[in-house]
């Protein structure tokens, strides 16, 4: 599912700030590059998060032709995670402790157990498969609107934090009340802000 294939899911934002030096390809390229995705395939890092090209999720360089498709800018947020369940770590730890006792003839002390567990964690993380998530982002330049190809609080937070860290431009979620504040005339906007009581459609309420 995504903006190009299948059914699309999107969360809408309005950008309510502009870069001080103006919005240019150089600004976007520099910020995306500074917060680009770093591959952790050959490491034991638990997670990595950053920007990749929209049409090539393995590529984290940003020449303008890779993100600026007039009248939009498009890129993706990539999140790679390794998950190591405690149950598995504890099972391997029990095996390691048994081997230690067989070799040394006594139980490892607390400090030794901590060292053994840290080493095991790194070893198991390196051997575990990465889970990759991709979040497509479309920036509609003409109306300062951004679409995130995902919904849900966790995904929104992940994207909003990455966006703010990268561009420093405030985002306003486009939901019923914020859309209302954009499309209504001032008297209606004032009434909207004052509206507190929901209506009910059942005939025997209130």
């Amino acid at each position: 599912m995504g903006f190009v294939k299948g059914g699309a899911t999107l969360t809408r934002y309005r950008i309510f700030e502009e870069p001080e030096a103006g919005l240019t390809d150089e600004f976007i390229s520099e910020r995306l590059t500074a917060n680009a995705f770093v591959d952790i395939e050959e490491t034991s890092e638990e997670s990595s998060q950053g920007w990749v090209q929209f049409f090539d999720h393995l590529e984290a360089t940003f020449p303008p032709e890779a993100f600026h498709f007039h009248p939009i800018v498009a890129f993706s947020l990539r999140l790679d995670e390794r998950k190591l369940p405690n149950k598995i770590l504890n099972r391997y730890m029990a095996i390691a402790e048994a081997r230690f006792i067989a070799e040394i003839g006594k139980k490892p002390n607390a400090a030794k157990k901590r060292d053994m567990k840290d080493a095991l964690r790194l070893d198991l993380l390196k051997r575990s498969l990465l889970d990759t998530q991709l979040f497509e982002v479309i920036w509609l330049l003409e109306n300062n609107e951004v679409w995130l190809g995902a919904t849900g609080e966790r995904n929104r937070s992940l994207f909003e934090e990455s966006w703010l860290r990268t561009f420093g431009l405030g985002l306003r979620l486009l939901v019923p009340v914020t859309v209302g504040l954009e499309v209504l005339e001032k008297p209606a906007r004032t009434r909207l802000m004052a509206l507190k009581e929901p209506s009910f459609f059942g005939a025997d309420d209130e």
Partner: peptide, 9 residues
């Protein structure tokens, strides 16, 4: 809550 389209085809 959001009126954001999901699985829009």
């Amino acid at each position: 809550d959001t009126l954001c389209p999901k699985s829009a085809k």
